[in-house]
Amino acid sequence: MDLFTLRDLRVRLGERDALDIPRLGLEEGRVIALTGPNGSGKTTLLKVLSNLLAPTSGTVLYRGRDLASLPPAQRDEVRRELGVVLQSPYLFRSTVEGNVSYGLARRGVPRAQRRTRARRALEIVGLSGFGRRPHWALSGGEAQRVALARALVLEPAVLLLDEPFANVDAVSRSVIERVLVQENRYQGTTVVFTTHDMEQAYRLADTVVTLFEGRVHEGSMENLFHGKVREGPEGPVFDTGTLVICVPPGREGALTAAVPPETILVSLSPISTSARNTLLGRVNGVRERNGTVDVTVDAGDTIVVRLTERSYREMDLKLGMQVYLIFKAEAVKL
């Protein structure tokens, strides 16, 4: 069942649409990553889900209920099922323990119980013995972990985290990754986090939602181009200024185009094929990622091609080599 269901969601910030999502469901019990470049709307979406920002129009259902239509007391009740960690978290002018037990105190949990639960939460994030430290005597990574403990201690049904891995040292990062996965696996907590690191998103999350200019982008964010559709000699083409690719007809207004890396063929010589796009480029990067190899090719714009390890080895690709990239017009998503 979907934990969050968004319908016709629109958020306007100033002059522009920060979010425009006709329909999106986020499933319960999953680890969900919201990714996308800066300004793509991932933080805005997280704030909407966290109930910290009201959408301009449309509805957000949490377990099938529209929070905006609930009376304030009930809404507060539901809101308390959410554990939110904001970007570059703010710690209250208090001790670490004071920070961690903040939410419990607001829920009327007695002092002794607050103390034990805060200690346990600090243990989970690897900060045992930090309870009495003042808020200002922490590194960025430690502060981020305190903020995580502050949300965990509330035993939320959902954890919502905005860029939990940004500006964090390696140790804190691995602790946070471990905690998120554990909470999801053993407590059944749904975890939603934003990140601009695609690799991390795919590694940690069951579901990756990619945002681009406030819209949910189907498929991955690789090979995403900005430009305009115009009429070419043999049907519509998408022109980025440095790259012209043939695209399927009927999407004249599109401003972005994406070519999934798996759909691109690599060849060392030009081949005759029914695919309408053949681009000449030069290999300028190779990266291995669990079982597949990403080859980046400079063909006017940088294009990523995903190969199996075997075909990569068979082709014996080297940096600087000239290659032809071949893909169908239908493979291009507008």
Binding site: L52, D76, R79, V85, L86, Y102, G103, R106, L154
Partner: peptide
């Protein structure tokens, strides 16, 4: 951020 943080923690 203090206010938002308080609200996000259920205040």
């Amino acid at each position: 951020r203090a206010h938002a943080t308080a609200v996000s923690l259920g205040a």
